[in-house]
């Protein structure tokens, strides 16, 4: 896993206004190779919009997004509706937008536990299988940045825990950075190298443990935050990764917070 100073993607002072509402305000964010970054925030805090700005689906009203050379994004959307008039097998879905050799498809399906479903229609998959197919498609081109939007949605607690373990595995085997968005505090904390707490603007960020202790974070999530912190402290698999800027909430966050509240 490389961890040099080069950034994969960077947002500089990104603000987005949709229909007169400020969805994002002055968000600065840089993702470095191989790190797992989790964006947490309440519903409607702009998390999904932030991801959509980064993939280029939403144009920032102010600020800019800079993509590093050779950036390959694997994107797993929050939900995907496939029109019933569109026939699409799992195999065909994995071949979008680039076609892959049969053995690559087979390997990918095997890793996702979908080897029996290559010729099944996407619309016949269960929620969990559909999620795994989305993930397999995002990974098949070996991205260096995997983006997950509420990917654990609809999974039960065990499923969610497995899912985040899987995310760590993917990072370790592929060496890709992971940027994920979630409102699910409990499990998110375990897998992240860095947590960004978003409520239209970034209110605090850093190492998960530091963030869960930050007053801004606790103000946003209340007692849920206590439980998440407790969970985190009892987790025997703490992350050994280094965090140059990890152990404090950014001063910038403190200033923004007052304007936000």
């Amino acid at each position: 896993m490389s961890r040099n100073a080069e950034t994969l993607i960077r947002a500089d002072g990104v603000s987005v206004r949709l229909g007169g509402n400020a969805v994002l305000e002055g968000v600065d964010l840089a993702i470095r190779p191989g790190e797992i970054v989790t964006v947490v925030g309440p519903n409607g805090s702009g998390k999904s919009t932030l991801l959509r700005v980064l993939i280029g689906a939403v144009f920032p009203t102010h600020g800019s997004v800079e993509r590093g050379g050779g950036l390959r994004i694997g994107y797993v959307p929050q939900k995907l509706h496939i029109d019933p008039t569109l026939p699409l097998t799992v195999r065909r879905f994995l071949n979008l937008p680039r076609r892959h050799r049969a053995d690559e498809i087979r390997d990918s399906l095997e890793r996702a536990g979908l080897q029996a479903y290559a010729d099944a229609s996407m619309s016949d998959l269960s929620g969990g299988q559909f999620q795994r197919a989305l993930m397999a498609r995002a990974l098949i081109d070996k991205p260096n940045l995997l983006m997950l939007d509420e990917a654990s949605q609809g999974l039960d607690q065990t499923g969610t825990a497995d899912f985040y373990r899987q995310v760590e595995e993917i990072r370790d085997t592929l060496g890709c950075a992971v940027l994920m968005v979630s409102h699910d505090l409990h499990v998110v904390m375990r897998a992240a190298d860095r947590v960004i707490c978003l409520n239209h603007s970034i209110c605090c960020q850093g190492h998960p443990e530091a963030v869960t202790a930050a007053p801004e974070y606790r103000a946003l999530f209340g007692t849920d935050a206590d439980e998440a912190l407790a969970l985190f402290r009892h987790d025997p698999h703490k992350h050994p990764h280094e965090h140059p800027d990890g152990n404090e909430c950014h001063a910038q966050g403190h200033e923004k917070k007052s304007a936000d509240a």
Partner: peptide
Amino acid sequence: WQALLTATVSDDLAYAEGY
């Protein structure tokens, strides 16, 4: 074909692929 199909499945997937 492939770009049209990707965009038909999902605009966001197409954006993420650089289309």
